[in-house]
Write a protein that binds this DNA or RNA. Sequence first.
DNA 1: CATGATTTGTTCAACTCCTGTACTTACTCG
DNA 2: CGAGTAAGTACAGGAGTTGAACAAATCATG
Lengths: 356, 356
Amino acid sequence: MSPRRPQPARQASLRAHNLALVFGEVADRGPASRAAIAAATGLTKASVSSLVDTLIDGHLLTELGPAPQGRIGRPGSVLGLSPDGPVGVGLELNVDYLATTTVGLSGHLLARELIAVDLRGYPVDEVIARAAAVLRRALDQAPAPVAGVGVALPGLVDTDGGLLRLAPNLGWRDVPVLAELRARAGLGDLPLRVDNEANLAALAELWFGEHRTPEGAPLTTFVHVSGEVGVGAGIVVRGELFRGARGFGGEIGHLPVRTDGPRCRCGAVGCLEQAAGLEAILRAAAPEHGPPPDGVHDSGPEAGLAGVIHRAETGQPGALQAIRQAGTWLGVAISSLLNVVDVGAVVLGGIYGRLA
Amino acid sequence: MSPRRPQPARQASLRAHNLALVFGEVADRGPASRAAIAAATGLTKASVSSLVDTLIDGHLLTELGPAPQGRIGRPGSVLGLSPDGPVGVGLELNVDYLATTTVGLSGHLLARELIAVDLRGYPVDEVIARAAAVLRRALDQAPAPVAGVGVALPGLVDTDGGLLRLAPNLGWRDVPVLAELRARAGLGDLPLRVDNEANLAALAELWFGEHRTPEGAPLTTFVHVSGEVGVGAGIVVRGELFRGARGFGGEIGHLPVRTDGPRCRCGAVGCLEQAAGLEAILRAAAPEHGPPPDGVHDSGPEAGLAGVIHRAETGQPGALQAIRQAGTWLGVAISSLLNVVDVGAVVLGGIYGRLA
DNA sequence: CATGATTTGTTCAACTCCTGTACTTACTCG
DNA sequence: CGAGTAAGTACAGGAGTTGAACAAATCATG
């Protein structure tokens, strides 16, 4: 809520900062010798030696052997991320599936479990219990100590309080997901964070994405638009995720894009979600079918989207027109967004990635 | 441009951090004893003593004398901001005036000089020379060492490069204001920063503003809308100014608010500036006068605004209608902004402050 | 093949800074 | 006037970085 009070700097904070600096250097720019790390970070060789020792003891870095000789002078001993270092576990709780992912230090996949299940029908309690069980299984099967757990949720998330504030598509409101999971999965004091899936998708793009700037540098400033039933955007500026005051930034689903248009669930008129959301596309693409029935329908909106794509590829004008229309509205919203946050790149994810 | 490389933490950085922590405590929360500072910051009494000694030597803090006794125990010696500490100098280069402001550590005004002059007629070179001269005078007359200089500019500013990228109302483009001022005013290596006036207005609101949250706490998250000929917004989230990738965040003047509407200088249609900017208000309020003539007109748009306000106060429907109309469009733009950055408060400045 | 140049990584004394404890100082309360 | 309490200081000790000296490993060269 309020900006947190700055902490005093102790000797240990200093050490922690420099450990992170050295580790980050290897993580971001690949394996390097101690001397190279010293040159890149500005630390002295002596400090780097000491820091690297600590990191090796903690199984975060490992010696990869001597550098390939070619230049004069003693060859360095190359350090890389430890393959048997601590792992991270991610839990995705989404509308129609539940999944865990276990990754190593370099982000490589170690294990994944996905359970396709439409969670809309179940009470909150039962969903949390199932999620906790899946998470517990991932933790038990982890091949190394788990450093922390991240949870992606489909809605507005209060990251500080660990609350899922609002998930319209699940029908949830103010669910203390973090506390519940910690208790039911027996996490002890393991670091555990929850966040909005749009934000996390943006971070994934930042850390692991293949997109590049025209100059070939990795993107560090962009908007990642992830459309599903709702429309969200994760905003990354200078390598940092931008959240609003309460962590609800980037909710572009309810940007006003057309002064006419249907009334939205949120009460306003002309919201993007009503103009370019998944259901709006389906509605526009298949007006002859009428609006989809309420409640669970066995084909699901996703299946409907595949249908639209197929019909568009075979040249049916209604489907093409619907996609073009949605793209136009999305463009209006994104241009608003770009004006405000001044970023240079937009990455389309979710249904828009498939439509593009 | 690119996210800057993290710096190594040295012993000195640690000291600097803690000095800032102690100083900031006194600056933010008012005078306090060493013991109170220690309790508030989490530092030990011994550290605070040492840090305070350094700050007193640097004329940043000063002993205000013993605390008013009332509680048992030895009374503390209260520390406050030094009145003869270093001063800061601000330079405002705006369309129709040039001003310098000299302030003490606590932000109290020490000196101010304002020269009303319409700068639109003059070549860039001459304007910079005049600004440098005014700045030089302020520096020479400063009653204490000058810690740094801040420059407010009416346009898009690249703060890293010290460039005024674009100032449509001055007709400037890519002017290296920082370098020019440093050279012409003989600033040596004095810290010097340039920024957008909207951003600086927002920071001023953050640091010195009287606005409070409903709970009575100072605002730390808000949007400061400053409308003049153009419309800009400074965005402050959790006590920090948010800039876009290149420092051009908050340019809401060209948010698309109406899908119809006149074409804007920027090439798009429906920009806020065309719907609710100063000239749009004047145009709407006085349709019988026709659009104002191009170029400089001796009354100036500001004078026109006073007229509109006066006519509205005397109940003339045309003026009222114009203001109401502009307010509506501004509301649409602000609601877009709030969706994206998720802040809870909006502060109206510039012409909107007067219209409200 | 031996020597010197060059670069890497470690060791060690010195320095800076924070911390905890003990101590002095200064005031209130009874 | 003495006990109690809180503020500020002094000092030893620990953690961390620095810089220089040194040992190790390789290439270049005669």
